[in-house]
Design a protein around this nucleic acid. Structure first.
Length: 558
RNA sequence: UGGGGCGUGGCCAAGUGGUAAGGCACGGGGUUUUGGUCCCCGGAUUCGAAGGUUCGAACCCUUCCGCCCCAGCCA
């Protein structure tokens, strides 16, 4: 229901499902699944797949299984299972209280393998891994048959049972499907179904010492769960004939596999291996570092589930390789946060202003919490003779089109008064501006001039003696080039050294006690999220994204 | 020289024989107590290229060109 506002564009998978519903191909059912391997954290690319699978199920009154494809105990860990479940839920999808595991089907998969052996469609091969590779042939040359290919069903069954019973060492034998060693599709050249692995599985423990390969296992998982549409990424297109072959050989429920192009985003990487390397080598501070394209990283950064779902809908679903502009993600984030994030004032790089004709006292001014949502009300913010403004909001020698404060110029302090700069105080040695003196017009209280005079800029501010200190982390793109994963040099060469900058900011006192995870806007600066490490006595904010800044863009052009 | 896919504006992407949706980005204008938001307006004589079929083609046919994936006992 949270997605009613997001317009659904047609895509080829939705079209297939519509047609299937019309023809009653699956008795009106839509059953999808999201099948991650628990060997890493989910990233924005997975989010696309999650939105697709869960979204389609929701749209057509079907359901979607969160299923762990945990068939390789060597790479999988419990930790990843927890993070994946958390991420799927956070994205706003309902797993209906069930989590599915491929490992729960190990016995049934084994039984099906026995069936194939009995049908003469699978055999135990004693070739070594190297030999299997040699026998496989190449992309242009056909492979050749293993000398063990024509063992009797009885012998194969005996051997396979003994493989399962742990009689053979790792790597000594495999079970293979007997298909076609000369197929142009390498996946069909007698693919391995089972390997011997004396490894402890995070769920099934030491119960098994043969583990199924992806192609064999995946179709069975789908079949067992009565999946109707098995949606996966493009690289599995070549595997579809094998997916079909296994299910046809067994004559069991046979879902339709449909492939779509995975998501690529500019200025980041999506490879699990590379993401893991960034974490392990300390280039970032963990999987949930706000610079990471992981769901946990984006959550900590302040991105919302709504924004990510909106992105997934806007980018569409197709079969061509593409590279989505990070600007689109940022747009989605701003779109959501603009509507929902309460506004506050915070000065990231303070410059002291003394209002010389303002009395030595304090008054509390009304500030609107969110102009996009009048119901969010107002709050009082203390104002006094000494305030901070943003250093970049003052120019002693303003360039053309710079509307902000400058000597002799009048601007508005948001929700406060008009002030005019009358003096600039500089450090005699360095020439650095230390503070500026202004006068204010008492008649403009609240920010409106009764005489109707206009001012070209409105500045945010904070009272020196009331302000809180806060640590603010400013994030920029993790990499310096759009496609670091496919560049000349190693992707690590393109890490952006300025991707994280920390500043000590002065912020309005109403932020005292704000809860970790809260998303706000610092007016005129951007959206920020209270970090999970933030404490009442030590507030920490992560910059989610800046506001659109046409002035900065103008200046950059020069 | 094998097999499987894909080519529509800067980035995504609808469209599947009737004369190029939409979004982001970009540019221009308006409103504005955030140079934010919001609101207008602007853009492909053209759909990888060349032929062909047709009254009519991005959609059908042919050839060519380009890009991606596949030779794990990973998923």
């Amino acid at each position: 229901m949270p997605d009613d506002s997001i317009k659904k564009a047609p895509n080829f998978i939705r079209n297939i499902i519509r047609k299937d519903l019309e023809t009653n191909k699956w008795d009106g059912r839509v059953q999808t699944r999201f099948p991650p391997e628990p060997n890493g954290y989910l990233h924005i690319g997975h989010a696309k797949a999650i939105c697709l699978n869960f979204g389609l199920a929701r749209e057509f009154n079907g359901s979607c299984n969160l299923r762990f494809d945990d068939t390789n105990p060597l790479k999988e860990e419990e930790e990843y299972i927890h993070s994946i479940i958390e991420d799927v839920k956070w994205l706003g999808f309902d797993i209906e209280g069930h989590v599915f595991y491929a490992s729960d089907y190990f016995q049934q998969m084994y039984d099906y393998a026995v069936e194939l052996i009995q049908k003469g469609l699978a055999y135990v091969d004693d070739l070594t891994a190297d030999e299997i590779r040699e026998y496989r042939g190449t992309l242009t040359e056909p492979g050749k048959e293993s000398p063990f290919r024509n063992r009797s069903a009885e012998e194969n069954l005996d051997l396979f049972i003994r493989m399962k019973n742990g009689e053979f060492p790792d790597g000594s034998k495999v079970l293979r499907a007997k298909i076609d060693m000369s197929s142009g599709n390498i996946n069909m050249r007698d693919p391995v179904m089972y390997r011997v692995l004396h490894a402890s599985h995070h769920r099934s423990g030491d119960q098994w010492c043969v583990y199924p390969m992806y192609d064999w296992a995946h179709g069975l998982e789908d079949s067992i769960e009565h999946i109707t549409h098995s949606i996966c990424t493009l690289e599995f297109e070549d595997h579809r004939p094998l997916y079909d072959w296994y299910l046809d050989a067994l004559k069991i429920h046979h879902p339709q596999q449909i492939e779509f192009a995975r998501l690529n985003l500019t200025y980041t990487i999506m490879s699990k291996r590379k993401l893991l390397q960034l974490v392990r080598e300390g280039h970032v501070n963990g999987w949930d570092d706000p610079r990471m394209p992981t769901i946990s990283g984006m959550r900590r950064r302040g991105y919302t589930p709504e924004a990510i779902r909106s992105l997934a809908e806007r980018i569409g679903v197709a079969k061509r390789d593409s590279m989505v502009d990070m600007a689109l993600l940022e747009f989605c984030v701003r779109e959501d946060l603009n509507k929902n994030a309460p506004r506050y004032m915070g000065v990231l790089n303070p410059l002291k202003v003394i209002i010389i004709n303002y009395p030595d006292h304090c008054e509390h001014l009304d500030c609107v919490n969110n102009p996009e949502n009048p119901e969010s009300g107002t709050r009082k913010v203390p104002f006094s003779r000494e305030i901070y403004i943003e250093r970049e909001d003052f120019r002693e020698d303003p360039p053309k089109k710079f509307f902000r404060l400058a000597p002799g110029r009048e601007v508005r302090l948001r929700y406060a008064y008009f002030i005019k700069c009358v003096e600039v105080i500089k450090d005699k040695k360095t020439g650095e501006i230390q503070q500026i003196h202004c006068t204010y017009d008492p008649a403009t209280r609240g920010g409106d001039a009764p005489d109707g005079r206009k001012v070209k800029a409105t500045l945010h501010w904070v009272s020196v003696h009331h302000a809180l200190s806060a640590k603010i982390r400013l994030y920029d793109r993790l990499f310096t080039i759009p496609d670091p994963g496919n560049a000349e040099k190693d992707y690590l060469e393109y890490l952006n050294p300025g991707s994280l900058k920390t500043v000590e900011a002065r912020i309005e006192p109403s932020l005292q006690g704000i809860e970790p995870g809260t998303r706000i806007q610092f007016e005129r600066k951007g959206y920020f999220c209270v970090d999970s490490d933030s404490k009442d006595h030590r507030l920490i904010f992560n910059q989610t994204v800046t506001l659109r800044d046409t002035w900065a863009k103008l200046e950059q052009k020069k």
